[in-house]
């Protein structure tokens, strides 16, 4: 493992320096562009997470769908999907209300990528799962309750 590279990544947080590194081919450019939103992932409650994402209070929308099981037997692996028919979707995020940190994942979708993302998440307990979608600069949300019979956090 290249220790020096780690230190470089740790000590430089400036975007300019990161892009310089990217240009030099030290780190993959795509990764350098996205800066992990620590505030959003550290936020505990739904409201704080939405604030950290800059989403304010999203409107409920019928054009956003959360897919997943009604009952998940194993909270460690819950298949969850987000899809939307709204135009110009640039971002989708999955939030789990009762997890220690609400935000599970967020995805930036460049033009041409469909608003249809599936993944698997961990759920500590039965909770509402929210799909947050940014369309034309506005945020929309949909909810689905997923019951968990065996939690996925702890053990």
């Amino acid at each position: 493992m290249n220790k020096q590279r780690r230190n470089v990544l740790k000590t430089c947080s400036g975007a300019a320096l990161m892009s310089l590194l990217a240009a030099a081919g030290i780190i993959a450019p795509g990764i350098a562009l996205a800066e992990w939103n620590k505030a959003a992932f550290d936020a505990k409650s739904m409201a704080d997470t939405l604030k950290a994402l800059g989403a304010g209070t999203p409107a409920d929308s019928k054009d956003v769908q959360v897919t997943g099981p009604d009952i998940a037997e194993n909270g460690a692996v819950v298949p969850v999907g987000v899809s939307s028919t709204l135009p110009n979707v640039t971002m989708v995020a999955i939030l789990i209300e009762k997890n220690p940190n609400a935000l599970a994942a967020s995805f930036t979708l460049p033009e041409g990528t469909e608003a249809n993302v599936q993944t698997r998440v961990k759920m500590g307990q039965t909770s509402n799962v929210y799909a947050l979608v940014k369309s034309d600069g506005k945020f929309f949300m949909a909810t689905k309750e997923i019951k968990v019979t065996l939690g996925g956090c702890g053990g």
Binding site: A34, T108, T119, K122
Partner: peptide
């Protein structure tokens, strides 16, 4: 696609 993941994945 550019994704940011948390510990809940």
């Amino acid at each position: 696609l550019a994704g940011e993941l948390g510990t809940a994945v």
